[in-house]
């Protein structure tokens, strides 16, 4: 069981035998008042969303989903094909089911897919992925002020903010949980 203090964004809990994911999570506490946990929940099957505020005494059942390591093969016409490395079975995911992970998916990447009674629900990647920068404005020398950023495009088409010294062709590490740049990777 989870306590209210375990609640966080992307946690999966079971309500009325259906899996829900916390799409938004906010801790609220008036100065002398009690802790409140304001959540937006999404039904992982129907996609229906609702808001609910919990108290610190509330407890939650984890959603029992199957997690499987699979390999991403290709994307075609908005369908994403993953293969089970043990029995070579292939499953197609919709863009919705892949979610934000599509920003970081490159061919042959290993991913953890989420199934609820054999139905695809979602995809999660390792926390950090390394991606090649395919488009970047050149670094204007002298622009070395800490905290400055510029947008670049990586090989998946995803656009993110990076420090100004990152150049085209370089590999960068991205945090898949936040979508943010972490560091430059030297091969």
């Amino acid at each position: 069981m989870y306590a209210a203090s375990d609640l966080r964004k992307n946690l999966r809990i079971k309500i009325d035998n259906e899996p829900y994911i916390l799409t938004e999570f906010n801790f609220v506490k008036p100065g002398k008042g009690q802790a409140l946990y304001r959540c937006k929940l999404k039904n992982m099957i129907s996609g229906a969303q609702f808001e609910r505020t919990f108290r610190s005494v509330d407890v939650f059942e984890p959603a029992d989903l199957q997690e499987k390591k699979m390999q991403f093969l290709y994307e075609q016409d908005g369908k994403y094909c993953f293969m089970d490395n043990e029995n070579y079975e292939q499953i197609l995911f919709t863009a919705d089911q892949v979610g934000d992970a599509r920003n970081y998916l490159i061919e042959n990447m290993e991913a953890e897919v989420l199934l609820f009674e054999d139905r695809p629900l979602g995809v999660s990647l390792s926390n950090f992925v390394d991606l090649v920068v395919t488009k970047a404005d050149p670094w204007a020398r002298g622009d070395s002020v800490s905290g400055n950023t510029k947008p670049v495009t990586v090989e998946t088409g995803y656009i993110l903010q990076v420090p100004p010294f990152i150049e085209e062709g370089e590999k960068i590490r991205v945090d898949t949980r936040t979508g943010e740049y972490l560091t430059r990777v030297k091969d």
Partner: peptide, 13 residues
């Protein structure tokens, strides 16, 4: 500088 990126961003704050 790379590893300190998140900290460096906070400098003005």
């Amino acid at each position: 500088m790379d590893g300190s990126w998140l900290l460096a961003k906070k400098q003005s704050a």
